[in-house]
């Protein structure tokens, strides 16, 4: 054995026990500090409540002191939310049509900012059959892609349970779509909605894939992503979103959570509500009442 070999051997032994344990201990302390610091930042964001997603201190202060110039409106005074009472939905799809009119969404069954799904449990079945207005049979039934209507295919079969569920963008507290947007074209504003700046959208569709709720679609004509923004141009003028305005049964409830007497505050307070896919950690702002285990 040469001198060099012996030296190497000694080093290896020294590393293998005492030094290794020491390093392990230091490493764990460092990692623990990092994790706790990180969660401290996260919880501060939640506790602050008002801070928009991914906003730093300076930007937060700016949004308080110098809000966007919208006539008779200050985004610091509002925290919008929506409720969906699926027990009341009749599946008439007028919300979808009104949304398309209001926001000039493409007039076919496949591009939509809000839509309605039908869940049907046949007799003795534990799994739901789901269809929406885009189902080929429903399109065939109306004879046109520009008329939205559910067909009556379950008329002659025995059904255990069935219901409609309106869907739309959940305007999450931690929106996946905003996280992946490379250009800052989509962002969460301080009063709740996630908006799209179409002049900055490059049409890469990362956001369409990132959304766990399938709430985004791609407008091939304009080359930009599209999504529900709770009719931001209406709610900032004191109006309800178009879908809420036309819903004939009061299925959709909209309002300001800062106001304890608003319809949405009462809805959340007086009903057992849930959000879709809570395990995704997106913290949605659309609250459902009466949905079933299969609704995601």
């Amino acid at each position: 054995m040469t001198t060099q070999d012996r030296k190497f051997d000694q080093q290896a032994v020294a590393l293998s026990r005492r030094r290794f344990l020491g390093l392990l201990g230091k490493g764990m302390v460092c990692a623990g500090t990092l994790v706790s610091a990180n969660s401290a930042i996260g919880s501060a964001e939640v506790r602050g409540g008002k801070r928009a997603y991914q906003q730093n201190d300076a930007q937060y202060t700016e949004s308080l002191n110098n809000p966007p110039e919208i006539p008779d409106y200050n985004w610091n005074d509002h925290q919008w939310a929506m409720g969906v009472d699926t027990d009341r939905c009749i599946g008439c799809l007028r919300c979808m049509e009104a949304c398309k009119m209001e926001n000039s969404v493409q007039m076919d069954a496949f591009h939509h900012r809000t839509w309605v799904e039908r869940y049907v449990y046949l007799e003795g079945s534990n799994t739901a059959i789901v269809d929406s207005q885009a189902d080929p049979k429903n399109i065939e039934n109306t004879g046109s892609e520009t008329k939205f209507r559910f067909d009556n295919r379950y008329r002659n079969v025995k059904v255990d349970k069935a219901f409609f569920v309106p869907k739309l963008c959940n305007q999450c507290e931690h929106p996946s779509c905003v996280q992946v947007c490379p250009t800052g074209a989509t962002f969460k504003v301080k009063d709740g909605p996630v908006l799209i700046d179409t002049t900055y959208c490059i049409g890469c569709q990362y956001c369409v894939q990132a959304c766990p709720y399938g709430a985004r679609s791609f407008n091939e004509v304009r080359g930009v992503a599209e999504k529900c923004n709770w009719c931001y141009h209406r709610i900032t003028k004191g109006l309800n979103p178009a879908c809420v305005e036309v819903c004939p049964t009061g299925t959709r409830i909209f309002g300001d959570r800062n106001d304890p007497e608003s319809p949405i505050s009462l809805f959340i307070k007086n009903n057992h509500v849930q959000v879709l896919k809570p395990e995704m950690g997106n913290a949605p702002n659309v609250f459902y009442k009466g949905t079933d285990k299969e609704v995601v």
């Binding site: 928009a52 906003q55 009119m101 209001e102 962002f187 908006l195 700046d197 002049t199 141009h233 209406r234």
Partner: peptide
């Protein structure tokens, strides 16, 4: 201004005329 996006966009989106 308010985050990683164009601050002016907020007012622009809000300025659209309601149709219904």
């Amino acid at each position: 201004q308010y985050g990683h996006y164009r601050g002016d966009a907020v007012a622009e989106i809000a300025s659209k005329a309601p149709k219904l």
